[in-house]
């Protein structure tokens, strides 16, 4: 029980850190186009060529898989532990909606990740689909891929709207992960709740606003 929960929490926290890095990279897209293209492409090239980052990337894949698998196991077992459900249940009076629906939110995020990987990872790293060009510096033009994608309204909406469940998932996930891993200082927990909220808002708004920005630019 503790082991499975700790895995979900630890991988979750790791993914939270990853999101910060990811968002800061994405923020490049908010710059004027020429600067953004150059910077974005050279940054992604640097990441691909760095051995350490490659290792982290594998850790990331493993984290996502562990997070999903163990969360699924826990949810399955917890549902079994609960057994028959109440006919009437007003759990909105004693807990937040997201805390009651982490699995449900998680499914959307998983769906997002699958599509996201198909759009970028499959294209750039595996070379599936049309060839990706290079920019003036000879770096693979990831910017072009991104920009093209976000100019498609459906993808733009997909990438923006799915940041909402991500935000909810992160808000509960971050503080819950800390508690699962044994952070119990009472005043600290109150602060943690605020930090989680701020973090969730920054992540979901930050990630969500970029496709909109690119689309309407």
């Amino acid at each position: 029980m503790f082991f499975r929960k700790s895995i979900v929490a630890a991988t979750g926290l790791f993914l939270c850190i990853f999101l910060i890095v990811h968002l800061s990279a994405n923020a490049i897209l908010l710059l004027p186009e020429t600067t953004a293209r150059e910077l974005y492409n050279s940054y992604s090239t640097a990441l691909r060529e760095n051995l350490f980052i490659t290792l982290i990337a594998y850790l990331l894949y493993i984290s996502i898989i562990l997070h999903v698998v163990y969360a699924a196991i826990i949810t399955f077992r917890n549902t079994k532990s609960k057994g028959e459900k109440y006919k009437v249940n007003h759990n909105n009076k004693n807990s937040t909606w997201m805390s009651q629906n982490m699995g449900f939110l998680g499914v959307f995020i998983l769906l997002f990740i699958v599509v996201h990987l198909a759009n970028f990872w499959a294209k750039i790293k595996l070379g599936i689909g049309e060839d990706v060009g290079v920019d003036v510096n000879g770096n693979v033009d990831v910017y072009e891929v991104t920009s093209f994608l976000f100019h498609n309204m459906y993808f733009m909406l997909f990438y923006s709207v799915l940041m909402i469940p991500l935000g909810f998932h992160l808000y509960h996930g971050l503080k819950s992960a800390f508690m699962t891993l044994g952070f119990y200082h009472k005043k600290g927990l109150r602060l943690l709740a605020k930090i989680s909220l701020a973090y969730a808002i920054i992540m979901s708004v930050g990630f969500g606003i970029i496709p909109l920005f690119v689309y309407f630019k």
Binding site: I74, R77, N78, K80, N94, T96, S99, Q100
Partner: peptide, 14 residues
Amino acid sequence: NFGSCTFTGACEIE
């Protein structure tokens, strides 16, 4: 066979 805690916080309210 009790389930695991996911910190919904409902327990401390009730």
